[in-house]
Design a binder for these strands. Structure first.
Lengths: 118, 118
DNA sequence: CAGCATCCAAAAGGATACTG
DNA sequence: CAGTATCCTTTTGGATGCTG
């Protein structure tokens, strides 16, 4: 059985692609529906075009995202979750929802910790 | 409202701590119950003591994990999820469960992709 | 056992300039 | 618009040696 705890198992690589610095945010943004390159760039604060392009290529290769070029000038390229990728949406949304609700608790804990220690 | 898509929002830092290279695996391992340092080291394949210690410190500071020292020789140190951290367990387990089920699909997609392209 | 400190190599990733 | 290519800095993280 595939096991992310085993560093030799392909599951580890899948984990690292999805939880890579930008992977989660891209997948979450695409959970809302198809998006163009420039829309993703605007939605995800702080991402460079290089990293957006690079991470999207990884996700396309992993079969989680499709890339569609509409022939036009200027070119329109849109990205969309595959059925496989859509299987992740629920748990990713739950996870991001937890963060929305509990960021304040984490910040509070950090402050308390920094006050007690260095 | 806290928003991980905004690179200035503390939520982004919370996201990055949890989805850091080793953060998810540590939190998932602790989802099973309290664990000692050496147990975590054995459970999580490929992690160095340095990174285990470093990531645990971050999670403790974030209020997701507690560190307990039992005075003994040799010292016994155990880590456990806080109530806050336990709130993450369900969605993390769903996520890792998805990976267990679909690693094979991702590997298949990668192979198909590598065959068609370079 | 459970770390921390230091050093160093490798990888990630940002800035910039350029292209169809 | 949607990238690619190059350069260069920052970060990551492994190895090693040491400590209570």
């Amino acid at each position: 059985m595939s096991d992310a705890f085993n560093s030799e198992c392909p599951a580890r690589e899948v984990l690292e692609h999805i939880t890579s610095r930008w992977g989660m945010l891209i997948l979450a943004a695409l959970g809302e529906g198809p998006r163009r390159f420039s829309e993703l760039h605007a939605t995800i604060g702080g991402i460079s075009e290089k990293m957006l392009s690079q991470t999207l290529r990884t996700l396309v290769r992993d079969g989680l995202v499709t890339r569609t070029v509409e022939p036009a000038t200027p070119p329109r390229v849109s990205y969309e979750l595959t059925p496989l990728g859509r299987g992740l949406t629920t748990s990713l949304e739950q996870f991001l929802s937890w963060i929305r609700k509990h960021t304040i608790d984490v910040v509070t804990a950090q402050r308390r910790h920094d006050k007690q220690h260095g």
